[in-house]
Amino acid sequence: MSSPSEIKKGIVIKHNNDLWVVSEFQHINPGKGAAFVRTKMKNVKNGKSLDQTYKVSENIDIVPMEYRSMQYLFHDTTGHTFMDTHTYDQIVMADAEVGDDAKYLSEGLGVIVAMYDGRPVALQLPKKLTFKIIETEPAVKGDTASGNVSKEAKVDAGFVVHVPIFINQGDSVVVNTDTGAYVERA
């Protein structure tokens, strides 16, 4: 048995006899109450989402996984295909299993795939990835005075990230893949 304080993104918890991958988590200390960990989990089998809050002092069942280094190959109608960098085996993860993380995938990207019972159950991306800004408004004088310290920018992979106003089109930026937040200029 494990403590909820060990909960991290990508770990697998056995809950009501099903396996759930943690997709988001947050520690909460309400002050007037005990410490809790709020989690969002995805059912390994059907991709269904569940919000679950654990008290830090209770026991949970964290399932040990086999972690394999893989390289991202391509996307087609079956889902996303990865290749084991040691055995060259190819595995496919369905779109629902990859979820929102799909936006970070590009050909050749090295990832870790958590396997259970020979099946891929969770994807772990590098924590920080670099993208090029292809579209953003130039900073406007007075922005900071009115409280705007960030703006939207579109990156080459196609998604939008909030960046500080000094970032320009053509800059490369580092994005935290856990939170989707801007980290620094690359």
Partner: peptide, 12 residues
């Protein structure tokens, strides 16, 4: 049950 209250409150 304080824990039950917080779990419901913090989750939902």
């Amino acid at each position: 049950d304080e824990d039950e209250f917080f779990k419901l409150f913090l989750t939902h």
